[in-house]
Lab assay of single mutants.
Amino acid sequence: NQASVVANTLIPINTALTLVMMRSEVVTPVGIPAEDIPRLVSMTVNRAVPLGTTLMPDMVKGYA
């Protein structure tokens, strides 16, 4: 099973992502692959992402 990116904290809308905000976890449904974490750093989220939420491609500006 592939690990996905999961919010390690509440990420407010329009926040630039940092490494400490994200962790990898095997979850269903599958979200952004964990190997993309380095690429996500400094990208911003377009909605509030609660703790434990899987990051989906449409949640990160410029990812999809």
Score class of each variant (00 low, 15 high):
33 P>G: 06
33 P>C: 06
14 N>D: 14
34 A>M: 13
3 A>I: 08
2 Q>D: 15
5 V>G: 00
49 V>E: 01
62 G>K: 07
39 R>T: 10
30 V>R: 03
13 I>N: 14
33 P>I: 14
13 I>Q: 09
47 R>K: 12
42 S>A: 13
1 N>Q: 13
6 V>K: 03
17 L>C: 03
12 P>W: 03
6 V>S: 02
32 I>M: 03
55 L>Y: 00
36 D>C: 05
21 M>L: 07
9 T>I: 15
53 T>P: 01
2 Q>K: 05
36 D>N: 12
55 L>G: 01
48 A>H: 14
26 V>A: 10
14 N>R: 06
17 L>G: 02
8 N>W: 04
7 A>W: 01
38 P>E: 08
32 I>E: 01
8 N>E: 07
46 N>S: 15
51 L>P: 13
58 D>Q: 08
59 M>P: 02
28 T>C: 15
39 R>K: 11
52 G>A: 10
18 T>F: 03
64 A>Q: 15
37 I>H: 02
19 L>C: 14
59 M>G: 03
42 S>L: 12
49 V>Q: 02
57 P>F: 05
17 L>M: 05
12 P>T: 12
38 P>Q: 11
33 P>D: 08
2 Q>G: 15
35 E>H: 12
8 N>Q: 13
10 L>H: 14
61 K>E: 13
53 T>M: 15
32 I>S: 01
51 L>A: 11
58 D>V: 07
63 Y>G: 04
22 M>V: 06
32 I>A: 02
14 N>T: 06
25 E>T: 09
23 R>A: 07
35 E>N: 12
57 P>M: 09
10 L>S: 13
37 I>G: 04
32 I>F: 02
30 V>G: 07
52 G>C: 04
15 T>W: 06
31 G>I: 01
29 P>L: 06
16 A>L: 07
57 P>L: 04
33 P>F: 08
12 P>A: 09
21 M>N: 14
7 A>M: 03
41 V>R: 05
7 A>S: 09
48 A>R: 10
4 S>L: 01
24 S>C: 05
52 G>Q: 03
22 M>C: 03
41 V>A: 08
40 L>P: 00
22 M>W: 02
25 E>F: 04
24 S>N: 08
47 R>Q: 14
46 N>H: 14
41 V>C: 04
31 G>T: 01
1 N>W: 08
63 Y>D: 03
43 M>L: 15
53 T>A: 12
54 T>N: 02
17 L>S: 00
47 R>S: 13
5 V>N: 01
52 G>K: 04
61 K>L: 10
36 D>A: 10
28 T>Q: 08
49 V>A: 08
54 T>D: 01
13 I>K: 09
62 G>R: 05
23 R>D: 04
24 S>K: 13
15 T>M: 09
14 N>H: 15
27 V>E: 02
20 V>K: 11
43 M>K: 12
45 V>L: 11
14 N>W: 10
30 V>N: 13
27 V>Q: 04
56 M>R: 08
38 P>L: 12
57 P>I: 05
18 T>C: 05
56 M>W: 06
38 P>R: 08
18 T>P: 00
64 A>W: 03
59 M>L: 08
24 S>V: 13
54 T>I: 07
46 N>D: 12
41 V>S: 03
30 V>K: 05
26 V>D: 15
61 K>T: 15
18 T>E: 11
13 I>Y: 09
22 M>T: 02
3 A>S: 13
61 K>C: 15
57 P>T: 08
19 L>R: 11
44 T>P: 08
30 V>W: 08
19 L>D: 10
55 L>N: 01
34 A>K: 07
48 A>W: 09
27 V>R: 06
9 T>N: 10
59 M>A: 09
50 P>N: 10
56 M>F: 08
53 T>S: 14
48 A>G: 15
57 P>A: 13
36 D>L: 12
31 G>K: 01
30 V>C: 05
33 P>L: 07
